[in-house]
């Protein structure tokens, strides 16, 4: 199981690299630099010469190669889980990740063959985040901390925390979808100034692009407020629960960096590296929020670590806040 966990960490790293590569494809406008799929200029993709990976092909074909590698890694992951993982729901999650990565590949092909239709490209971007969150979750589920650590992180005893922890990934994912819509409809610079919009708090004129862009800015405010509220609640009520405060603080830091990157993206005129970093940090923030939510709601996972945890550790340890209220 330990090796599986390390393997999953590697899959997470590869998946984040894949998201960066996908972000580079869009940021450099290289999505159609390879017009065919799954071949590359009529050549089997793995046989395409490296010397011809020039210009936009470098980004698009590179993205395909990394994606194929992640696909193969996910096949290995699903099979490995099926062979050694005793928890059925974790095994199923492995197969779900494999189905997600296969679907993701098909969406990538369809969006190329149909000249990047926005709904398909947005779905491709959205599913990428779901897949990333899945492999991060699997990494958490196979970690020693999840399997042998204390049960009962307090979701049932602290309903405010329970709701905040669930709302955060939902709001962040909504914000990611708005961002993907903005990205794939060319609305990234629909409002060219920051922090104001055409010199006003609210744009004085409206188009579809301006509405999408402004919605992303409003979403950023909502996400920041939600995340800081969650972190604040944790630090105030459960300061001793490091397994919760650490991801909450990491999430807060990522969201603040993300807001800065968003502003920089606009002010730099969508500079490629900045724009791509904005995509990657968004994915990391979503994953961090999922980890936090899972840890807060861990007690809902009936057999979480039950197969490996000593019987004596099954009893839920009350959290500091709930203990105080009791």
């Amino acid at each position: 199981m330990r090796w599986l966990h390390f393997y999953l960490r590697f899959v997470v790293a590869a998946s984040l690299l894949l998201i960066v590569a996908g972000g580079l494809v869009t940021s450099t406008g290289s999505g159609l630099a390879v017009p065919d799929w799954p071949n590359t200029y009529g050549t089997f993709m793995f046989a395409f010469p490296f010397s011809q990976m020039v210009g936009g092909i470098f980004y698009e074909h590179g993205h395909r190669l990394i994606a194929s590698t992640v696909g193969l890694l996910t096949i290995g992951l699903a099979v490995w889980l099926a062979r050694i993982e005793p928890r059925r729901w974790v095994r199923r999650l492995g197969w779900t990740a494999l189905a997600a990565v296969v679907t993701q590949g098909l969406l990538g092909g369809i969006t190329v063959l149909y000249f990047l239709p926005a709904p398909v490209s947005i779905s491709h971007a959205g599913l990428a985040q779901i897949f990333f969150a899945l492999v991060v979750s699997l990494t958490l589920f196979t970690s020693p901390g999840w399997r042998t650590g204390p049960g009962g992180y307090g979701a049932r005893s602290d309903p405010v925390l329970a709701r905040l922890a669930l709302a955060a990934p939902a709001v962040i994912y909504g914000q990611i979808l708005i961002g993907a819509t903005m990205r794939h409809t060319g609305a990234g610079l629909a409002i060219p100034d920051f922090p104001l919009a055409f010199g006003h708090l609210v744009p004085p004129q409206w188009t579809t692009g301006i509405a999408i862009h402004f919605a992303h800015r409003v979403g950023a405010v909502a996400v920041t407020a939600m995340v800081l509220a969650t972190a604040g609640h944790l630090l105030f009520h459960h300061p001793g629960r490091r397994e919760l405060t650490r991801p909450a603080l990491l999430l807060s830091a990522l969201v603040l960096v993300q807001v800065g990157l968003g502003a920089w993206t606009v002010l730099s005129g969508r500079q490629v590296a900045v724009n791509t970093a904005h995509v990657a940090v968004g994915a990391a923030a979503f994953a961090a929020s999922v980890v936090l939510a899972l840890r807060v709601h861990r007690e809902r996972f009936a057999d979480a670590g039950a197969d490996v945890r000593p019987a004596s550790s099954d009893a839920a340890e009350p959290i500091a806040g709930s203990e105080a209220r009791a």
Binding site: P35, N39, G42, F44, A99, G105, L106, G109
Partner: peptide
């Protein structure tokens, strides 16, 4: 078998390369 079917669809797509 669901996953195998999805993979088969992906492979079938290879025969429909646009540059061919």
């Amino acid at each position: 078998w669901i996953l195998v079917s999805l993979a088969a669809i992906a492979v079938a797509g290879a025969c429909n390369s646009r540059s061919d």
